[in-house]
């Protein structure tokens, strides 16, 4: 299948900060690519370059076969963009926002109104259509943002952290909307800080950190690398850490990462928990916490870079 988006060696610096340091990217037509990384990793910069809002300092990219620097107008005709920085006008109503964009795209008054109403109905915003966007809830606002980016029926959709800050229910609603779009053939580039979001939606994931691609593959490949789940053990006293480390090392074959009193280790084998409990019982060690949890972005990071995600280590 052909690549809808192709980027080679993208570099972008803001002052002394190197936001992107040679990024390659391929998105197959009709698929969802999840761009995963912590705040400030460079995700937004990539999306802004591909959406023609920023020029790269080096490297080049094509979207739908068009060069983002030399043929920006053609690229804009293909792409719908949703992100915190590409926002609707919160002083206008939901309907007015959609009509505005339809009119800008050259639709007649009647066409624009029909298109706006159809999108409002599709996104469950018909009742709120006459209210100013600033009075919308977080979830409604994101749905309106998404609807606004779909007015021109783009064949490609860039979603920059579409669910950040949403409650779980609104998040699930947005996920199902995104899935429906892809089933209609739209290519999606999605950025997220959540592994489960990329896992749930994306066909392929690219992990990005400090402006560089540090891993790429299908969700299954990435999780296999990390271990789908992690076992977390919290020692009662610091003097127990050595003994606990030995136990975990013996049972899993890998050295657990230690963070204060907390030991974390990949847990791919379902029999690991009972095995750990038995050993604790035998040795007479008591722990404050013993739990199995799904792998997080932090685990992916830890396994690839050997360090934790640093929240907000630089502005995105």
């Amino acid at each position: 299948m052909s690549d809808a988006i192709q980027a080679r060696g993208l570099v972008k610096a803001f002052g002394v900060t190197r936001a992107l340091d040679g990024v390659d990217l391929d998105v197959r037509s009709g698929s969802i690519l999840g761009l995963l990384g912590p705040n400030g990793a460079g995700k937004t910069t990539i999306v802004r370059i591909l959406a023609t809002l920023l020029r790269p300092d080096a490297g080049h990219a094509t979207v739908g076969g068009y060069d983002v620097e030399k043929q920006p107008h053609q690229v804009r005709q293909l792409v719908g963009l949703t992100g915190q920085y590409a926002s609707v006008d919160d002083k206008l109503t939901g309907r007015e926002n959609l009509v505005l964009i339809a009119r800008l795209l050259g639709q007649s008054r009647v066409e624009a109104r029909l298109r706006a109403n159809a999108l409002l109905a599709e996104f469950g915003l018909t009742d709120a259509a006459g209210r100013a966007a600033k009075d919308y809830s977080g979830g409604m606002r994101r749905r309106l943002d998404l609807a606004a980016s779909l007015v021109g029926r783009p064949s490609m959709l860039f979603l920059d952290e579409p669910t950040t800050g949403l409650d779980p229910r609104a998040r699930l609603e947005l996920w199902s909307l995104i899935r429906r779009l892809v089933s209609q053939g739209t290519t999606v580039l999605l950025t997220t800080q959540y592994l489960d979001e990329a896992d749930n939606l994306a066909d392929a994931i690219v992990v990005i950190d400090r402006g560089q691609v540090i891993a790429a593959g299908t969700p299954e490949q990435l999780k296999a690398r990390v271990g789908a789940r992690s076992l977390v053990v919290r020692a009662r006293e610091a003097s127990n850490i050595r003994a606990l480390t030995e136990i975990l090392l013996e049972l899993t074959g890998t050295r657990p990462t230690i963070d204060g009193l907390r030991l974390t280790t990949p847990a791919s084998d379902p029999a690991l928990v009972p095995a750990v409990v038995r050993r604790l019982d035998q040795t007479g060690l008591t722990v404050d916490e013993l739990m199995l949890r799904s792998a997080s972005l932090d685990d992916v990071f830890l396994s690839i870079t050997g360090r934790h995600v640093e929240p907000d280590d630089q502005a995105s």
Binding site: A51, T52, L53, H73, Q74, R76, Q77, V79, L81, G83, Q84, Y85, A86, S87, V88, D89, D90, I101, L104, L105, A148, G152
Partner: peptide, 20 residues
């Protein structure tokens, strides 16, 4: 307001005249 709230970028991402 348009610049800080991101409305301007929404317009810039559309295939419209740069000066509009």
């Amino acid at each position: 307001t348009d610049l800080t709230k991101g409305v301007f970028d929404r317009f810039r991402a559309l295939p419209i005249a740069r000066w509009a």
